[in-house]
């Protein structure tokens, strides 16, 4: 396959206080076998040789499973390829002479740290409010001690597949974190281990999601379409259902119990 000569328009922003702007770069002779991040590595090598500041971008495993990477490429979260993270987007998806616009995730809750790197700790804080199950420490429980029907396990796993990359927030016209939050809540609501904390979990996680400044879901579905793990809208429906159940059937706290 022939190599590509590309024009890149990349968002450059020195720090959180800088206003930032798109800067145009040329990269030549890019192999179609390269991944998108390798193409950025090649650009950065050029920039370092020229004594310029390399483009900052987040990455770690480069295997599509860690959720570290993520750029808005040509107007799409993780670029034009569906079901992949930015690291698994390959340059064969582009044509020679293409102009590629690369921007960071945009959301009030995701402030830019530098260039293409955003602070996604808002997602961590949502998780800290209930994206876990409380278990006793000690010896590992027997694998089949608690029975989980196969369809339930499968459905829970489609939620558990979330890698927390934030593409759902980036792709959402409202910068809503509903798919991220729903994936966790839905997964744990389905499994018996998550049941004891299910009501408290949904109320606390939703409250945190709101406090972080994410928008509201309008059921557009862009999140699921751009999600590298293709997590479906059914999880958001389950989140809504859990919320209504929590608001109506959550047992009262001991100090709220009606005596008569």
């Amino acid at each position: 396959m022939s190599n590509l000569n590309l024009t890149l328009k990349i968002w450059r922003q020195r720090n959180a206080n800088d206003s930032g702007k798109l800067v145009t770069y040329k990269v030549n002779n890019i192999s179609t076998h390269a991944s998108f991040l390798e193409m950025l590595d090649i650009l950065n090598e050029d920039l370092v040789k020229k004594g310029e500041d390399p483009v900052a971008f987040a990455h770690d495993c480069r295997e599509g499973i860690c959720g570290s990477c993520g750029c808005y490429i040509n107007g799409r979260a993780h670029g034009p390829e569906g079901g992949t993270a930015t690291c698994q987007l390959h340059m064969r998806k582009f044509k020679d002479g293409d102009t590629i616009t690369v921007e960071p995730w945009r959301a009030k809750a995701f402030p830019v740290i530098k260039d293409l790197v955003v602070d996604r700790s808002a997602l961590d804080r949502i998780l800290q409010k209930g994206g876990y199950v409380s278990v006793n420490t000690g010896a590992a429980p027997d694998a089949n001690e608690i029975l989980v029907p196969k369809p339930v396990a499968d459905e829970a796993f489609t939620g558990a597949a979330c890698i927390g990359c934030g593409a759902c927030v980036a792709a959402c016209p409202n910068a809503s974190a509903m798919l991220f939050t729903a994936a966790k809540i839905s997964q744990l609501a389905l499994l018996p281990q998550g049941k004891p904390e299910r009501y408290r979990r949904v109320e606390d996680m939703i409250a945190q999601m709101e406090d972080e400044g994410f928008g509201n879901c309008t059921n557009v579905g862009a999140c699921s379409l751009e999600c590298p793990k293709q997590i479906g809208q059914n999880h958001i429906a389950r989140l809504n259902r859990e919320y209504i159940l929590a608001k109506t059937f959550n047992p009262p706290k001991s100090n709220e119990v009606e005596v008569i």
């Binding site: 808005y72 107007g75 616009t101 921007e103 016209p173 409202n174 400044g213 994410f214 928008g215 579905g221």
Partner: peptide, 22 residues
């Protein structure tokens, strides 16, 4: 929802499977 994204994308192409109506 508007204020949840104070800085808009310079280039945004909605996924072709999302509906204009939504």
């Amino acid at each position: 929802n508007r204020s949840a994204r104070p800085i808009r994308y310079q280039m945004s192409k909605p996924h072709e499977k999302t509906k204009w109506t939504s």
